[in-house]
């Protein structure tokens, strides 16, 4: 039963997945087990994305299915269970830039790979990154940017982290449209990630998981 749900969801069979969820809830099953299956399915989706079997449409669609499951389950949930997370990651699009597709994909992949993600949104001034680092104690920061002025916005963000005395406490990665390793050097960030999986790999390395 459990495998059935995981497979259907990982294969993006939306209606069948939801039917099973309803049936299991009606049968009085522990909703936490259903959420756990949903999470396992998302892990499979993430793996298929990493292997270029799935692409952004599949991430978005599976995310929608997960949301629908969460909504069915929520009323029956006594309390939200905290799951063990690998670590915290702050992510945001830098000042002046309102693009969010790439950032959302990275957030999503970090989340399904077990990170606690603080997505602070688009057009975030350097100070907002600094404040979030102080507030969460996160050791990993992801800067997203699509346009060419983001080169400077990223550099200013890294400098602000440095000025706040936090530079040696965090690792900073950059990604998005025009970014590459030249820009990584220019901004003073620690790494550039070509895609969402690269971001996940960097975050894992930095928090000390495999």
């Amino acid at each position: 039963m459990s495998n059935e749900l995981i497979n259907l969801m990982a294969n993006l069979k939306e209606q069948e997945t939801l039917t099973i969820v309803r049936r299991r809830l009606d049968a009085g099953e522990d909703p936490l087990l259903i959420l756990d299956d949903s999470r396992k399915a998302m892990e499979i989706v993430g793996k298929r994305f990493a292997k270029n079997e799935y692409f952004i449409p599949e991430l978005i669609y599976s995310g929608e299915i997960a949301k629908e499951i969460a909504e069915l389950v929520k009323p029956k949930l006594a309390k939200v269970q905290d799951i063990n997370r690998l670590g915290k990651v702050i992510i945001g699009t830098v000042s002046g830039d309102i693009h969010d597709i790439g950032k959302n994909i990275v957030s999503f992949m970090l989340d399904v790979n077990g990170f606690e993600v603080y997505d602070i949104g688009v057009d975030q001034v350097p100070q907002n990154f600094v404040d979030k680092i102080k507030q969460t104690g996160s050791r990993v920061v992801g800067l997203s940017g699509f346009l060419t002025f983001a080169f400077d916005a990223m550099r200013e963000t890294v400098e602000a982290v440095k000025a706040a005395g936090l530079r040696d406490k965090v690792k900073i990665m950059i990604g998005g449209g025009q970014m590459n390793d030249d820009i990584r050097k220019y901004t003073g960030a620690d790494a550039y990630g070509m895609d969402a999986m690269a971001g996940v790999a960097l975050a894992k390395k930095w928090v000390g998981t495999k």
């Binding site: 060419t148 080169f151 025009q178 970014m179 590459n180 030249d182 820009i183 220019y186």
Partner: peptide
Amino acid sequence: IPASLMCTG
């Protein structure tokens, strides 16, 4: 010609 090169190279 990459934008990165034009802006920072």
